[in-house]
Design a protein around this nucleic acid. Structure first.
Lengths: 132, 132
DNA sequence: GCACTTTTGACAATCATTCTCAATACGGTG
DNA sequence: CACCGTATTGAGAATGATTGTCAAAAGTGC
């Protein structure tokens, strides 16, 4: 698989366009932003299609989805291993980080309280060097 | 301060009602749910007021706000120290957990990458004993 | 009670996201 | 290549949470 494929889905030109837009950008973007970007580049893709494609890519684990502070869903291409994000709250620059210790800690805490099928979300926000 | 005060704001009956609704409930609730609850209890409070009150309480650190998986803002009364949540994805039961190790880890990682003014969000989801 | 500021509530307005459904594109098959 | 059945698309309507508006009502200090 390449970095711009469509995640095992039928590779229509719309899906390729969305995957490419994600591949071409560093940080997180909303569905709306991707839709606009594609429009500007002349590869217009319907808004509903952008939403559907992003959801499928996220389900397939091809991209990461998280919520911005105001609850908007934002997406970013990502590696396939489990990881978290360190995001610059000004420019959106993102660093993927891993923390085996955190993974272990969350599972342990959850089990201790009798919770099963544990998952978790962890995002770190800060201001990066260039934005200071 | 008591568990049902209004967080230093002018204590109108609407704010007291919202604070009380939060105090009376275990898990996270959306603004809509609180609005309905108050309506059923006969202490009807305008929806916009519920939203405004919750936002102010959250700003004042009187309640925790987080986003459910579908992006809805949900609120819960909380202790004032920094902590995270272990939430049952079926019944919404919530346990506050602390993890000094995680706090240290996030700061360290962020600094290592040159990020300042670091904050983070961490939520753990699972199925609690009673929902299995 | 009075003057002044804050808060409220009903409703309109936003905005992201989802739904609907007919038109279109795919992919495989003969 | 023509054809068929299914998956996908797009335009626009519908939904639903959240926010804005603004005149009326309530809290505060005097």
């Amino acid at each position: 698989m390449t970095s711009t494929d469509a995640g095992g889905l039928r590779p229509t030109k719309q899906r390729l366009a969305v995957a490419e837009a994600l591949a071409a950008t560093e940080g997180f973007q909303s569905a709306q932003e991707i839709h606009e970007l594609l429009g500007r580049r002349g590869e217009s893709v319907g808004l509903a299609t952008v939403y559907r494609t992003l959801q499928k890519l996220a389900e397939a684990g091809e991209v990461d989805m998280m919520r911005s502070e105001d609850g908007e869903a934002i997406y970013r291409r990502c590696s396939d291993s489990h990881h978290h994000h360190l995001v610059c709250r000004d420019c959106g620059r993102t660093v993927e980080v891993e923390g085996p210790a955190v993974e272990r800690w969350t599972s342990a805490i959850a089990e201790e309280h009798g919770f099963a099928d544990v998952s978790h979300t962890l995002e770190i926000f800060g201001t990066c060097r260039d934005c200071r």
